[in-house]
């Protein structure tokens, strides 16, 4: 393993939210005892992920479908944006979520056609009532008959960015390069749990009204936070190098530039104050485009 030192006029961190926070927190010096660009102490804090909960089933009216190429239809052609903003005062949670849909003629992957015995005994196949399970040519007919009739719904929502949800440098553990790693302290608040409950109720209403038979995701409740995925599971981590106009309460200004160190930028998910209920990538792209234009402008003016 070889070590290099590289010098640059500006340093732009885009290592992903947690990794950029880690780089900053590990970059300690006499001048920056809390880590570079961290005079506010916020680096690593306000770590938040999207919320997520899911439900799915089958649509008996779609059994025995005529085949066609349906790739992309589930994920990209149907989407429910958050629709209750105007009525948010009536809800017991503050932030919204969107719904993504899946199903149909999807590519066979691991797990494809598992549990056929839950279907082929319960629904007539080509007009015949069969016994659940089985084998042989009749089973092959069943697999064909049920293909493309599944539907799934995934809610992805905004979790509240909180100071007490954070990552920090682990005092005891290093990676294979000898660099200290992060450790995490995250948990949901009541808001996200109530939002997940709302998701589940909505999914059930929609699935039931469209004639679906719900086959999974319907047995969640208080005991498991209404099926809310653990923080980190939706992989939209953000907030650890937040931006803001007050240098005491944020690490970056609105151009993704460090308040403390003018030639340091962070253009990944770290800069988010909140990630709304949208998935995160497009906003990362937009913010880094704005930062890029600003950097060019500032370099031309010899400000950095």
């Amino acid at each position: 393993m070889q070590e290099y030192q590289v010098y640059g006029r500006t340093v732009i961190l885009a290592a992903s939210a947690c990794e950029s926070a880690r780089l900053m927190l590990n970059s300690k010096s006499q001048r920056y005892p809390n880590g570079i660009g961290n005079s506010s102490g916020v680096v690593g804090k306000y770590l938040h992920d999207s919320t997520g909960a899911d439900m799915g089933g089958i649509l008996p009216q779609l059994f025995d479908r005529k085949r066609y190429n349906e790739d992309g239809v589930g994920g990209m052609h149907v989407y429910t944006p958050w629709w209750l903003d105007a009525k948010k005062d009536k809800l017991d949670f503050p932030r919204g979520y969107h719904i993504e849909y899946g199903g149909g003629f999807d590519m066979p992957l691991y797990g494809f056609n598992w549990g056929i015995e839950q279907l082929n005994g319960s629904y007539k196949v080509k007009g015949k009532q069969k016994e659940a399970g089985g084998y042989g040519a009749s089973l092959k007919e069943d697999y064909r008959f049920f293909f493309g009739a599944s539907i799934g719904m995934a809610g992805r929502g905004e979790g509240i960015a909180r100071e007490d949800s954070y990552c920090e440098i682990d005092p005891d553990v290093v990676d294979k390069y000898g660099i200290p790693v992060l450790r995490f302290h995250t948990q949901w608040s009541d808001y996200e749990i109530k939002q997940a409950k709302h998701m589940k109720e909505t999914f059930k209403e929609i699935l039931t009204n469209m004639g679906a038979v719900i086959t999974w995701g319907d047995d969640d409740g208080e005991h498991n936070n209404w099926g809310l995925h653990n923080p980190g599971n939706i992989i939209h981590e953000a907030g650890t190098v937040r931006m803001g106009s007050d240098p005491k309460r944020s690490a970056l200004n609105k151009y993704s530039q460090s308040h403390d160190v003018k030639n340091l930028f962070c253009v990944d998910g770290g800069q988010f104050v909140s990630q709304a209920d949208k998935n995160i990538t497009w906003t990362i792209l937009a913010l880094s485009m704005r930062a890029s234009e600003y950097i060019v402008d500032q370099m031309k003016k010899n400000n950095i």
Partner: peptide
């Protein structure tokens, strides 16, 4: 029963939505 149904239907879900939710990537 629950897991097999989950596998059955997750197998039939668009990667964009459900891979994210999967604990064990397909």
């Amino acid at each position: 029963r629950r897991d097999s149904l989950k596998a059955l239907v997750v197998g039939g879900l668009a990667a964009t939505t459900l891979v994210e939710a999967c604990k064990q990537p397909a």
